[in-house]
C-alpha cells in the first residue's frame, strides 16, 4: 500500500504532533507514505474567500504533483486539506469553466490533472485498507479504562461524507474500541469548533470551544480525540480564555494517532505527547487518570 502523503502547512507547524505521531504509527502498520515533493498550501477556507478560481488552481497543483509522482492516493490528514482537495476535484468534474481555467494554469507549466487521483483521510485508510483486525493485532498495551470522546469536527464529513456517516460518523469510535478504549457517546462529535474564530472573534470562538469541552467532560471523558490540527489547537490552546469566561473545564485533547501509538507500545518520544498545552498524562497499564491536578493546570493559569 503506497500513498502520497500531503501534510499541509499545519502538520509542519502548530499541528506537528499530528505528523510526529501519525508517521511512526503508519510505519508500524507497514504503510508506505511518500511525502509529496514540493507540495503547496491547500488554500484552506481563507483563500476561497478571496478568489475561488485561484484557490482551485492552487489546490490542483497538488493533485497534479501526485499524478506526476506515480498517481498513488493522496493521504491528507488535516481536515481542511482533505476537504479542499476533494472540493477542487468536485469542481473540476462539475464545472467545465473552472476545469478550463485550471487546465490553462497547469498547461502553462507542463503539468496536468486528469487521472482523478483519490484524496483519502487516514481514518478511511485505517478502517478500509488496513482493517481493524490488522490494527488489533498490533495492540500490545490496550487502552483499558481510558474514556475517550471522539471528536470528528466538520470538514471530514461535511459536505462530502465519502467514508463515514455524515450525521453520526463511527470510524474513529470503532478504531478507539479496537485499541481497547472506552468510547464516550456524545451528540457533539461533528459540531464546529469555531475554526479560526477563536483568534478573530473570541466572543464566538471561545464559547464554541467551551461547549465541546464542557459536554465531553460532563459525560465523563478523560480526553478528546481529534483528527484535525485546528480542532486540536482550539480545544487545547484556549483553556485559560475558557476559564476566564466560563470556569474550569480542563480536558486534554489528543490526536487519534497518539492514542494508537500508545496502544501499539511505541515510545513516548515517538508520539509528541509533550506538544500540548494541557498535558495528557494517562498511560496504558497505569490506573485511569485522576482529574487534572493543579500542577497540570499551572501552565494555563493566567
Amino acid at each position: 500500500m503506497k500513498y502520497s502523503y500531503f501534510p499541509g502547512c499545519s502538520l509542519k507547524g502548530l499541528g506537528r504532533a499530528y505528523e510526529e505521531s501519525l508517521l511512526p504509527v503508519m510505519k508500524h502498520l507497514g504503510v508506505d507514505l511518500q511525502e509529496l515533493d514540493d507540495w503547496n498550501c491547500c488554500g484552506a477556507t481563507a483563500y476561497m474567500s478571496v478568489d475561488e478560481a485561484k484557490a482551485c488552481v492552487l489546490a490542483s497543483r497538488n493533485l497534479a504533483l501526485a499524478e506526476r509522482d506515480g498517481n498513488h492516493p493522496i493521504l491528507a490528514p488535516c481536515s481542511a486539506c482533505y476537504l479542499v482537495l476533494n472540493k477542487t476535484k468536485h469542481y473540476l468534474h462539475q464545472y467545465p469553466k473552472m476545469k478550463a481555467t485550471v487546465d490553462r494554469a497547469l498547461n502553462a507549466v507542463g503539468m496536468k490533472c486528469e487521472k482523478d487521483v483519490p484524496v483519502r483521510h487516514p481514518l478511511d485508510v485505517l478502517i478500509n485498507d488496513i482493517g481493524l483486525d490488522a490494527i488489533k493485532m498490533k495492540v500490545t498495551k490496550p487502552l483499558q479504562g481510558l474514556k475517550v470522546a471522539p471528536y470528528y469536527g466538520c470538514q471530514i464529513v461535511r459536505p462530502y461524507a465519502t467514508f463515514d456517516d455524515q450525521a453520526n460518523p463511527t470510524t474513529m469510535d470503532r478504531l478507539l474500541e479496537a485499541l481497547g478504549a472506552t468510547v464516550i457517546r456524545w451528540p457533539l462529535k461533528t459540531k464546529c469548533c469555531g475554526g479560526s474564530l477563536t483568534g478573530t472573534i473570541p466572543e464566538a470562538g471561545i464559547r464554541m470551544v467551551y461547549i465541546l469541552l464542557n459536554e465531553a467532560k460532563k459525560r465523563g471523558a478523560d480526553c478528546l480525540a481529534t483528527v484535525c490540527p485546528l480542532c486540536q489547537f482550539n480545544l487545547d490552546g484556549y483553556h485559560s480564555a475558557v476559564r476566564r469566561q466560563y470556569g474550569d473545564v480542563l480536558l486534554p485533547t489528543v490526536y487519534f494517532s497518539q492514542l494508537m501509538g500508545l496502544a501499539f507500545g511505541l515510545p513516548d518520544r515517538d508520539l509528541a505527547l509533550n506538544r500540548a498545552a494541557i498535558p495528557f498524562r494517562w498511560r496504558p497499564s497505569s490506573p485511569p487518570p485522576a482529574p487534572a491536578q493543579p500542577p497540570a493546570a499551572k501552565s494555563v493559569a493566567a
Binding site: 507547524g13 503547496n40 494554469a105 509533550n274 501552565s299
Partner: peptide, 28 residues
Amino acid sequence: DLMKTGRFSLASEKINNREQLAKMFAAA
C-alpha cells in the same frame, strides 16, 4: 505555551518552485 511545547516558529515557509506557482496564477 507554544514556546514551551516547541511549536513557536517565526520561520518563513516556502515551496521551492515558487516561479511555477506564479506562472500558474498568471495563466489562470
